[in-house]
Design a protein around this nucleic acid. Structure first.
Length: 305
DNA sequence: AAAACGAGCAACCGCAGAACA
DNA sequence: GTGTTCTGCGGTTGCTCGTTT
């Protein structure tokens, strides 16, 4: 083989990465027209493209496949479906995507990732009332949720307790744990979409005030059994209705909701301010008998759901 | 006007299981 | 039965673009 041949051979062996060009897309489309969506590796071995079979398949599935809803934001209905199915199947994005015509697993995955970030922001980032961001994308998404009325707070009130709620809720509850907790299949219903609203509520409810007791609230909390009453309330477990211990196999997460309420306890006129009794993961659980959680099994990984 | 920042998206990587030789 | 290749999936990264400072 002469040098030129070797050079060309090396060129063909070189694997191209990065954004796809229109010409490459066309080659890929032609391949699928001829052979169907398979034999991805032959695209490179036949010298059609310098992309790996994996890359070709991914491009087809995510961008070139017919009937994709490219560039179309998830509708409220699609969001609801994703939330429900994620609760049911865990991070089985391909499985979830099969229930969403025109959506790919990558779409669902990205959507969920963005949603998690939004929730994390809601929980962990103190809002800055002095400088409200106009047209904040995250806010707009949250406010797009039907029937949600964001709690209106004076800037001083919001400033006062946003950091407190963080210390008691956000600072150590992993967001994903919260999502899992409330996304238990037992708790899932179409109104679960309102959970984001609930999170907002948790963040913005003033200390000493029952976050669920507010006539201004438009969210039907009765739709989320676990949130119908607060832990510590003698009726809390009753509010679980028929849910006995066995049915609440994932109840290991129930205590996780309590840091907030633990914080509430800080303000129940025992003379101890939050500075005197900061609720930390340790201090919070110190309030319970040490064997209290012995019978609780760890939450199975999503793959086991 | 430009830099900084953040959200969303596209693509890559590693792994696991299936299919095949 | 075993090794190799292919396919599919989930996690992660990096780029682009819009917004804010």
């Amino acid at each position: 083989m002469d040098g030129k041949g070797c050079h060309m051979h090396d060129q063909m062996r070189e694997i191209k990465k990065g954004p796809w060009k229109a010409e490459e897309d066309q080659v890929l489309i032609n391949h699928v027209k001829k052979n169907g969506p398979r034999d991805w590796s032959s695209i490179r071995s036949n010298g059609l493209l310098q992309r790996t079979g994996k890359s070709c398949r991914l491009r087809w599935v995510n961008k070139l496949r017919p009937n994709l809803k490219s560039g179309v934001k998830f509708s409220a209905e699609e969001e609801r479906i994703v939330i429900e199915l994620q609760a049911e199947y865990g991070n089985k994005w391909a499985r979830i995507a099969t229930c969403l015509p025109g959506r790919t697993d990558n779409d669902v995955k990205n959507f969920w990732s963005c949603r998690q970030k939004r929730l994390a922001r809601v929980l962990q980032t103190p809002t800055k009332p002095s400088k409200p961001q106009k047209n904040n994308r995250a806010d707009s998404v949250l406010h797009d949720v039907p029937s949600f009325k964001a709690p209106k707070l004076s800037s001083s009130t919001e400033e006062e307790f946003s950091s407190k709620s963080q210390s008691c809720l956000s600072s150590y509850i992993d967001n994903s744990e919260i999502i899992k907790m409330v996304s238990l299949p037992d708790l899932v219903n179409p109104n679960l979409l309102n959970f984001e609203q609930n999170l907002l509520r948790l963040e913005f409810t003033p200390p000493g005030k029952n976050p669920w007791d507010d006539s201004q609230l438009h969210v039907p909390f009765t739709t989320i059994p676990a949130l119908q009453s607060v832990p510590g309330d003698p009726n809390f477990l009753n509010a679980m209705g028929h849910a006995d211990a066995s049915e609440f196999g994932n109840a290991a997460h129930l205590p996780h909701v309590q840091p907030y309420f633990g914080q509430e306890r800080c303000h129940q006129g025992d003379g101890r301010g939050e500075n005197d009794n900061p609720v930390t993961p340790d201090s919070f659980f110190d309030d319970f008998p040490t064997d209290m959680f012995d019978h609780i099994e760890p939450l199975p990984s999503p793959s086991e759901w």
